[in-house]
């Protein structure tokens, strides 16, 4: 199978190591991965701010870059959710491509558990790790169960983390409360956003986290901003980086 790698714009620019880890992780599973150098952004920042009507240019570029692939995989739940919910072509003859993309795009952890059905990883990360459930991946893509529902618990990211040697997953007081990043919300409602971030960090610190991980770098970037302002020793690491450490 050929998998197209979709790297969110801010990961490309600020956290390339996450993209590298994602690429290597997939290649280690024997997958042929292609990366279109012309990709930019899924359009979510504009759409979530109310400017979805400006995103057709992004959509067209996305369809161009990701057509004719078996799967598309991205280390970002929110970007994948956005594409699944909102990708449409400008021309009717292209809509078939858009539909195919929407049905074959996966967030990294769900791709590993559901499509590749990975049941072991030669990875080692002997640290206490707090798992931050990013909202769009969780409540949008159902990569893990949400506490609001009366339903059996499950978590695809945690399933993978449990395969990592030496890794200790900590419990949290609030398992799936939002971190407060929220796109442009992080600056338009700065006070609330920062407070939410501080509270999430406090929860992880209270339970002894040495690292905070998650499937969305946007959340982790926000939490990292709080941690570094507090001069904390705790670091953030995208789940791809943890799963990609060699044993």
């Amino acid at each position: 199978m050929t998998v197209g790698l979709f790297i969110p714009c801010y990961v490309d620019q600020f956290y390339p190591q996450v993209a590298v880890a994602t690429l290597e992780l997939l290649e280690k599973q024997g997958i042929k991965v292609v990366y279109s150098l012309k990709q930019t952004c899924c359009g979510q920042p504009m759409a979530n701010s109310g400017y979805e009507h400006l995103t057709q240019g992004c959509n067209n570029l996305f369809i161009q870059n990701f057509q004719d692939l078996d799967y598309i995989v991205s280390p970002s739940g929110s970007c994948v959710l956005h594409i699944k919910d909102h990708l449409h072509a400008a021309e009717p003859q292209q809509e078939k491509q858009a539909t195919k993309i929407r049905s074959t795009i996966y967030e990294l952890t769900e791709f590993l558990t559901d499509i590749l059905q990975v049941d072991n990883l030669s990875a080692r990360f002997p640290h206490k790790v707090g798992m931050h459930q990013s909202c769009h991946g969780q409540r949008g893509l159902h990569i893990s169960q949400m506490t609001e529902l009366v339903a059996p618990p499950f978590s695809k990211p945690e399933k993978l983390l449990k395969m990592v040697e030496g890794l200790e997953l900590i419990n949290l007081s609030r398992k799936d409360e939002c971190c407060g990043f929220g796109g442009t919300f992080c600056v338009t409602e700065e006070a609330i956003s920062a407070k939410m971030g501080k509270d999430r960090v406090k929860d992880h610190l209270l339970h002894g986290a040495e690292y905070i991980t998650g499937a969305d770098m946007s959340c982790l970037m926000h939490l990292e901003g709080v941690l570094r302002r507090q001069k904390s020793k705790v670091q953030v690491k995208h789940i791809a980086e943890i799963l990609n450490t060699y044993a």
Binding site: F14, G197, G225, R228
Partner: peptide, 14 residues
Amino acid sequence: QQREMPEPPKESFH
């Protein structure tokens, strides 16, 4: 106001 900015890396993933 309450967060550090992310560090710019030496190169993009591109």
